[in-house]
Design a protein around this nucleic acid. Sequence first.
DNA 1: TAATCTTGTATCTAAAATGTATCTAAAAGA
DNA 2: TCTTTTAGATACATTTTAGATACAAGATTA
Lengths: 213, 213
Amino acid sequence: MSKILIVEDEKSIADLIAMGLKANGYEIDFALDGGVGADCIMDHHYDLILLDIMLPNYDGYELLEYARRESFPVIFITAKGEVKDKVKGLNMGADDYIVKPFEMEELVARVNSVLRRYKAVINLPNIKINTKTRQVFVQDKEIKLTPKEYDLLIYLEENGGTILTREQILFHVWDADFDETRTVDLHIGRLRQKLGLEDVIKTIYKIGYLFEV
Amino acid sequence: MSKILIVEDEKSIADLIAMGLKANGYEIDFALDGGVGADCIMDHHYDLILLDIMLPNYDGYELLEYARRESFPVIFITAKGEVKDKVKGLNMGADDYIVKPFEMEELVARVNSVLRRYKAVINLPNIKINTKTRQVFVQDKEIKLTPKEYDLLIYLEENGGTILTREQILFHVWDADFDETRTVDLHIGRLRQKLGLEDVIKTIYKIGYLFEV
DNA sequence: TAATCTTGTATCTAAAATGTATCTAAAAGA
DNA sequence: TCTTTTAGATACATTTTAGATACAAGATTA
């Protein structure tokens, strides 16, 4: 069972998160301020850390450093409008971020996804992905992917077995809202061709795509 | 063979540590109180010092000062809940810390890691780095690096095999927060050229750089 | 104080990625 | 079967990004 540390000064939010995650089988530790957070990070092992950046009397980035040292994966919790912080956090090595207020479903999805993704090597039939170097190998031969192609592949893999609409894909991979273009189709095509995924990435006519597992 | 000094007043713990480290091929000296510890540090050469901060009648930080002066690497041993001390220790220049009670495995791992980091000579294909003198040799010919270039090289080498974003590099090597400039790119270019690292330092388009190992 | 070295900005160029347009083929419904 | 809609394929133009060079400001040394 995975153990998760929540570093969040607002007790009500922390409780809510804890409840949601416990319901999904995670074990939870709390830290209501940065000091305790640092303490926990150093003393225990966690599979994941949920970290509010805006902690009173403490710089969340400092905690990120500690978490990095122990190589724990980190998801940032951030309030709306702290966009720059989000970007900064991600670039500095957070694995994901989530914006308050959020749906519990989304939080759980992201937690699951980061935990799965944190595996350095993802193994698929014929395909190996090294997430540390963003390298992709098809039958031990490296295939160069562009950033978008790589991100798309990861998103598809994370959601293997579920049908994804073009809108969902656009939203997650492109961070775009809505679009009438064929961008997604094009990139799906390129992935299929480069990685020989013609049969793995199925087209769901009029709906979207499905990465078969 | 590496020689390690253990400064720890609890005999039983000191014995335990010594046993574990000896089993891994390290030579051990003891100091059961701060005074003896200071003497040892000044009289002998050690490759590493394991230092309990909470010594009776003695401030562990004082010993850290001595160790620093001799430029011995230091790992703090600290009891649960002494977080502030831990942080203080790291900020004061300890190289790592470990929290009691700890697994012997973890201790050995950290000792190994610190010693590796402290190695006077780093050997890479074609390149030799003397960290004591900050000299860099390419095929036994010295190449003069500027301070920034050298720091960048060390940071890249320490994180070999992982993609580093420009933000991460800026943060660690420049101590700068955010930046829209091309400073990192420029210095990467200079390193590549001076040391012939064109193929070793890979550009990860739109992401950052990767030092291949 | 002059000379040299270091560092980073500006500018230009080359390369890579991305997405639009267009055409063709396949799927679904009548 | 025919028509319409939808998705795949290809080519190409645009945009973004990184490398190279020159140079200026600041720091360091002689």
